[in-house]
């Protein structure tokens, strides 16, 4: 318990340091919002570590649920209420339940030695370092550029704004995604039905 709290405090200090260094914010002007972010980020890192360090697949999946839920809370702290709620409904509430279902039904034993094979380890190392590189790149060069926190535009994060963006600027992506999902559903039905006939 004490060790956990110590690790949490350490992570919080590290994330606050990250806010100061990467975000370019004065130490003196750190406010409650930054502390909340540091707390959420630290908890998220801890639960994400839980996903990869737990030996039982069920506990790993549950750690992932906690991570996704904390991500939703982070969205709330960023005033993106709709995205936060959709995050909970879709990821924490539906997709992860299916993950749990599969794990429970397949009755996976603890600690399958998939990581013991050299090929798997090599592939994981390559993909992991690529991801780290990408993450480092986006931290150094944020998509919107670093800018001081501005006042939120009216209607920010509202469902009206989301819908407007979705059905004007991102209409093609939206439609393509829905076709992709339809194809996936049809494919799943075909695969599942083949054995019955």
């Amino acid at each position: 318990m004490l060790v956990g709290l110590g690790v949490l405090a350490l992570l919080m200090i590290l994330s606050l340091a990250g806010v100061v260094v990467v975000g370019g914010i004065d130490v003196a002007s750190l406010n409650a919002g930054h502390v909340v972010f540091a707390l959420l980020a630290s908890l998220m890192i801890l639960s994400a570590l839980g996903v990869i360090l737990n030996r039982s697949p069920i506990r790993s999946a549950l750690s992932l649920v906690v991570t996704l839920f904390l991500l939703a809370v982070t969205f709330v702290s960023l005033n993106a209420y709709v995205v936060a709620m959709l995050q909970v409904i879709v990821y924490a509430g539906a997709i992860m339940v299916l993950f749990l279902f599969v794990i429970m039904l397949l009755n996976l034993q603890e600690d399958r030695p998939a990581m013991a094979r050299a090929g798997v380890r090599g592939a994981a190392a390559v993909v992991g370092s690529l991801f780290l590189l990408a993450a480092a790149h986006f931290v150094a060069h944020p998509l919107g550029g670093t800018q001081a926190a501005a006042a939120l535009p009216a209607g920010f994060g509202s469902i009206e704004q989301l819908a407007e963006n979705l059905f004007t600027r991102s209409l093609l992506a939206f439609e393509v995604t829905s076709i992709l999902l339809l194809v996936a559903i049809v494919g799943a039905v075909v695969l599942a039905k083949r054995k019955l006939e």
């Binding site: 549950l62 839920f69 709709v82 709620m85 409904i89 339940v97 749990l100 279902f101 509202s158």
Partner: peptide, 21 residues
Amino acid sequence: LNVGILYVLAMLSLGVYGVVL
């Protein structure tokens, strides 16, 4: 909350974990 009904649905969708667990 201006997305109140989504919030309620989100919370109710989490209820399934108690059952699964």
